[in-house]
Design a protein around this nucleic acid. Structure first.
Lengths: 108, 108
DNA sequence: ACATTATATCGAAATTTTTGAATGCGAGGT
DNA sequence: ACCTCGCATTCAAAAATTTCGATATAATGT
C-alpha cells in the first residue's frame, strides 16, 4: 500500500511535460539550475518550484557548490519507479489480484 | 516534444495511488467496474471518473458487454510509457542533451 | 563594505483536480 | 410495459497545483 503511495507521488511529479524534460536533461549528468532555466520559458521561481518537487519525490538529488545547485537523477529511485511500473503492468507474484495488499479478488 | 506531453499525461494519470492500484489489478486481466469498485471505498461516480482518466490517457481499454464494462490494460501504451521512462532515465541517443528537441545544451 | 549572481521562499491569483449526490441511460429480467 | 442493475454524466463545492513578482539568503568578486 505504501508502495503505491510513494510510487504515485513520483508519477504525479512526472505528470508535467516540463518536469519530464528536466529529468531527461539530467540523464546526461549533473546540471545546475541556471543551465536548466536557459532551456525553458519560465521564471526562476517557477523552476525552483519544479526542482523542489522533483527532489521531494526522490527522483532528483541536489548538491550545493558555492552559489550553484547541481541537480542529478537519483539512480536508486529511478530503479524503484521503473520496477514499480513494471510490476503494475505485468502479471507478477505480488500483484494485488494474487491476494496481496487487498482482501480478495473475485476476478471473472 | 509531443512525446513528453503524451507521456506526462500518462504519468499524471498514474499520480494517484488508487489509479496505480487499479492498473495493478488489471495486470491479471480484464475486470468489470463493479469488481474494481468492491475493492475501494469510493462512490461509483468517483470510480467512473478515475476509469475515464485511465482510458483517456490510453493506459486502459474499455469493452462493453451487456450491462457491464470490462476494463483492461492497453499493452501497446504500457510498452510506450515503459520505454519513455527508460529513455528519460538513461543516457540515450535521443536525449535532450544530445541536441534533440531543444536548441543547445551547454552542459558542464 | 558593496554590488552581483544563483537560488530559495513567500504571497496571492488563476487554474485544475477530486469528490459524491443526483440524474440519465441502456440492457436484461419479470 | 415496468423494474432493476451497471455505469456514465452533470453539478457544485472543496482541495490541490501552478505561476510569477517580490523578497530573502548566501556566496563571490571588486
Amino acid at each position: 500500500m505504501e508502495d503505491y503511495v510513494e510510487g504515485a507521488k513520483i508519477f504525479k511529479t512526472l505528470g508535467d511535460p516540463k518536469r519530464v524534460m528536466i529529468v531527461d536533461m539530467l540523464s546526461c549528468g549533473e546540471l545546475c539550475a541556471c543551465m536548466i532555466l536557459d532551456k525553458f520559458e519560465m521564471s526562476q521561481s517557477t523552476l525552483s518550484y519544479h526542482m523542489n518537487l522533483l527532489c521531494k519525490c526522490g527522483l532528483v538529488k541536489a548538491r550545493n557548490k558555492g552559489k550553484w545547485t547541481y541537480y542529478s537523477q537519483n539512480a536508486e529511485v529511478v530503479k524503484e519507479i521503473e520496477q514499480l511500473l513494471h510490476n503494475i503492468t505485468s502479471d507478477t507474484e505480488d500483484c494485488i489480484c494474487k491476494g496481496n495488499n487487498i482482501d480478495t479478488c473475485d476476478a471473472i
